[in-house]
């Protein structure tokens, strides 16, 4: 079985699909939480991810340029996360909160505007051109290569991908603990379930909303940094490119279902990568140029066939 077919499939399609899936998954968590707790589709989510990656890059640049030592992106991401969460909270306070009692569409519109504002701000501050996030070619993890090679199961996984896998799993465990074991996490699920009932139960909905932005912000941050680690560069359009697959993942998993969003993310990520595999004949099944279309197609089919998503989330 582990012939050249399997080798190629696993290393060049499946693993990259999984990596992309992890990134989508983390991003989709924030989208699904906002959608179910604040009840609107946040179009600025991708841009926040992108901003997080730029902030991380800046922290890294300051460390190596001014302080004289290099730091790993995941370390630099910690202070950057605080800024991203702050960005979320400030955005909510000044641009979304005024519409809390208004028609949903107003706040969707506001978030659509924020998408442009944040992206333009990043373009003004960091310039519109690509930046190198981590230079050099990522070599496969040598230990894993030797070990897997010795059992005829050659795996070529660079360290950056291992970081992404481990990081995503760690985030999932933390999120699961938060939502199921902590008071605020349970309250988040309660508000997602029924905001009106939460209100007359005396739950402090504002506090829950702040928690949602913090959790969503941290996940968006992780997704942004993982994406930058994966593609090793920064672009101001990277957030927007992620937006549609993340929406697709959230809808696929069922709105308000964080685990569903994760599964949705993995499915979309894998589907995008595997659609380029030469399943029939020699050429890719679908031209790689149409990758983004795969996520969209899945989303549209889902909306028609089962709008509540795989996990029976809320459907509006």
């Amino acid at each position: 079985m582990w012939n050249s077919f399997g080798f190629e499939f696993i290393n060049f399609y499946f693993i990259p699909g999984l990596v992309l899936g992890c990134i989508y998954a983390l991003g989709a968590i924030g989208i699904t939480l906002t959608f179910s707790i604040l009840r609107f589709a946040n179009f600025a989510h991708g841009e926040t991810m992108m901003t997080g990656a730029y902030l991380t890059w800046t922290v890294m640049a300051i460390c190596s340029g001014v302080l004289g030592f290099a730091v790993h992106p995941l370390v630099a991401a910690v202070p950057a996360t605080l800024l991203v969460v702050l960005l979320f909270l400030v955005t909510d306070r000044y641009f979304y909160k005024p519409f809390r009692q208004a028609d949903t569409i107003k706040v969707v519109m506001a978030s659509f505007g924020m998408m442009l504002i944040i992206r333009s701000a990043v373009q003004v501050i960091w310039g519109p051109n690509q930046l190198t996030f981590v230079p050099g070619i990522a070599k496969p993890n040598a230990y894993l290569k030797d070990w897997s090679g010795s059992i005829d199961f050659l795996l070529l996984i660079p360290n950056k991908h291992l970081f992404i896998f481990v990081g995503t799993i760690a985030f999932m465990m933390a999120l699961s603990y938060l939502l199921n074991k902590t008071r605020i996490g349970k309250a988040m699920r309660a508000v997602s379930d029924s905001p009106d009932l939460a209100h007359v139960t005396g739950i402090n909905v504002d506090q829950v909303i702040r928690a949602t932005w913090i959790v969503g912000g941290a996940c968006a941050m992780a997704a942004g940094v993982f994406l930058a680690m994966d593609i090793q560069m920064l672009e101001t359009t990277m957030g927007f490119r992620m937006l549609l697959p993340m929406f697709a993942a959230a809808i696929l998993g069922g709105i308000g279902k964080p685990y569903g969003a994760v599964l949705g993310g993995l499915v979309i990520g894998l589907a995008e990568e595997l659609s380029a595999y030469p399943w029939i004949g020699d050429g890719p099944l679908l031209s790689p140029g149409y990758k983004t279309g795969v996520a969209f197609a899945i989303m549209v089919v889902m909306l028609i066939v089962r709008p509540q998503g795989l996990f029976k989330g809320r459907s509006f």
């Binding site: 949903t104 969707v108 549609l244 140029g289 983004t292 989303m299 909306l303 509006f316």
Partner: peptide
Amino acid sequence: RSDYLAIATIGIAEIIKL
């Protein structure tokens, strides 16, 4: 619902450009 229509239309615009 309006949010979904927004997501769908922004997606379709991207697909058309694609």
